[in-house]
Design a protein around this nucleic acid. Structure first.
Lengths: 334, 334
DNA sequence: ACCGATGATGGGAGCGCTCCCTCACTCTCG
DNA sequence: CGAGAGTGAGGGAGCGCTCCCATCATCGGT
């Protein structure tokens, strides 16, 4: 493994000049630059990242903290972040957040002070006041995806709005018995975004004077979760709702499959709407609210990059709009 | 941000002693150690990772190269890797592999020589001879998950075996018209493991003297992929197979949904078997071959750790067994 | 002819850590 | 009782890079 000293020697210049030629910072004559670049190529020289980091204080690495990627939304988001970071020549260090505070504690006590990252993208995490304070002391930019908190840029989905639109769509179709699949009686169990969606559902009902009929079935935001909850919900022939809002498409699809098994026709007997526009939504002809997690990933990186370049620039907050995509899982109430 | 010099000063010892006390390498008296540790705690001292790396040559970071995590298998595998790395105090730097060689080229030309990683876990990647040579020159361990190549440890699924078992199961049930959903006429389009599965399917047929009936439907290894392929396969009432092997559970489930829509009863009229034991397999009562991607992730990290500790230890190769999980998507041929 | 930009280069300090080497001291054992 | 091993601590080089500063040449403007 050759060092910059080797390159400098081979090009017949000093280390300083070689560094300037290679990084593009400072005065170097064209001829010298070419010689240095050629020498570097000959030696297959690549700067030692730790040495560069130590000298510059920048690691070219971004930490990404996110929930397990087994949900489509997160895996898409991660893909978006990955694409953008790659394009900007940043490494991506992935951190899981298990609710177990161990990961989180370690992150704040060891990883951040270790100055491994130039910035952080935190997905679906609401930092505590104490954590925020530490982040502030960390003096490096944070962009959060989802929840928004003072002192950091954020790209958010309007989760409340998405669920509201979904619910309103059903109300407009004449439904007055609309259940929500994918809540949790213990609110702590819900991710931030999911909690917001419950909120949106309730808001829409309230706006239509239907708050009394609110029915929230607890379920994890997964297909089996939605399936199980729907089986229970639809099992009773008379108390059965005529429409269902899923906390996400996975849950909605689970509910749809449950309905089919129970011989309940969708959409004639039961309307179902989801949130996300999951890759499977089309196959199931699911009416849903389109989010674009991949683009949100891009946006998050853009914001972060901006703040890395100009740390004193004002915080920015992007809220991406939600759009209703009508397919054929919803219909007028009979 | 305090440095080790600050800690040393506060504890009234030299930098060297402080370092020894904190890293646990070399002689330090218990009393001194305690004083240093206390001083470090007071100052909230955490070693600067770049400085440590530069001095030790180790980054405590492992690079993970894998396909997009939108398939359950990969997201589980990643989760397993993440868990184990976290437990061992390693950072995880994530790399996508788009077939676009750009990522790959950059990895080999810039990232590896930049000495950012102590080791690499490569998932589903068959390095070219030239790449292998570079890896060798890199002199750091590589563990591959999936394909096995000379000179690196590997944890592999017996993909051939898995698909063979799945197919044999159908043959034992009396089926003689068994289609495979999720191939690709252009073999390059298939991931390594998927290609192996096609292999296993063909092997089983051949062993039963059924090679003549092999029918491989091209489809991406996804639910919509399996759905579309199955719709085509099952559309023709007479030429219809009596059993289907899915390249993975997602594809198998897609096929199952297609069958339902077409009014074909599973398993009475059509048997379906998948590979993976996906989280949704149970909900669909899918007979499948159980893999444990999460455990494979653990195993990959274990192998890597071993090789980081003792670089000259012999290469190890783990092949995890596959087990048939019979649910109710398969039945005797009528 | 002199001066101050401007361009091009080299010397070398310094980033924060580890670890080799040296030194001092205390035991242990022949 | 002295040699040698074992233990504890400090000094300081060195990891590979960047970047500040000093130096020197060139050149146009007064």
């Amino acid at each position: 493994m050759s060092t910059i000293a080797d390159v400098a020697a081979r090009a017949g210049v000093s280390k300083a000049t070689a560094s300037r030629a290679l990084t593009g910072r400072g005065y170097v004559s064209a001829g010298t630059r070419d010689r240095v670049v050629a020498a570097a190529a000959d030696l297959a020289y690549v700067a030692h990242s730790s040495a560069t980091s130590l000298a510059t204080g920048r690691t070219q690495t971004v930490g990404v903290i996110m929930p397990p990627v087994d949900r489509w939304f997160f895996s898409e988001l991660l893909a978006g972040i990955q694409e953008s970071l790659f394009a900007l020549d940043y490494e991506l260090a992935l951190y899981g957040v298990r609710e177990g505070t161990e990961t989180r504690a370690r992150l704040f006590h060891t990883v951040l002070p270790g100055r491994r990252f130039d910035g952080i993208i935190a997905v679906g995490i609401q930092p505590s006041a104490q954590e925020l304070e530490r982040l502030h002391r960390w003096e490096r930019p944070l962009v959060s995806v989802g929840p928004y908190s003072e002192g950091s840029s954020a790209v958010s989905i309007d989760d409340v709005g998405a669920a509201r639109i979904a619910t309103e769509h059903l109300i407009e179709l004449g439904h007055t018995d609309i259940a929500f699949v994918g809540g949790a009686s213990d609110a702590d169990e819900l991710s931030y975004g999911d909690a917001q969606r419950v909120e949106g559902y309730l808001e829409a009902l309230a706006a239509a004077g239907l708050e009394a009929i609110a029915r929230i079935a607890d379920a994890p935001p997964t297909m089996p979760g939605g399936y199980a909850a729907a089986v229970e919900l639809l099992g009773d022939r008379r108390g059965r709702p005529t429409a269902i809002v899923g906390v996400c498409d996975e849950a909605a699809i689970g509910a749809m499959i449950a309905a089919r098994r129970l011989g309940i026709a969708v959409p004639t007997e039961l309307s179902i709407v989801g949130v996300d526009d999951h890759q499977h939504a089309e196959m199931f002809a699911l009416t849903t609210i389109k989010q674009s997690p991949r683009e949100q990933g891009h946006e998050a990186v853009r914001l972060l990059q901006q703040r890395i370049d100009r740390p004193d620039a004002p915080q920015e907050r992007t809220v991406t709009a939600s759009a209703l995509v009508v397919r054929s899982s919803t219909a007028l109430r009979r």
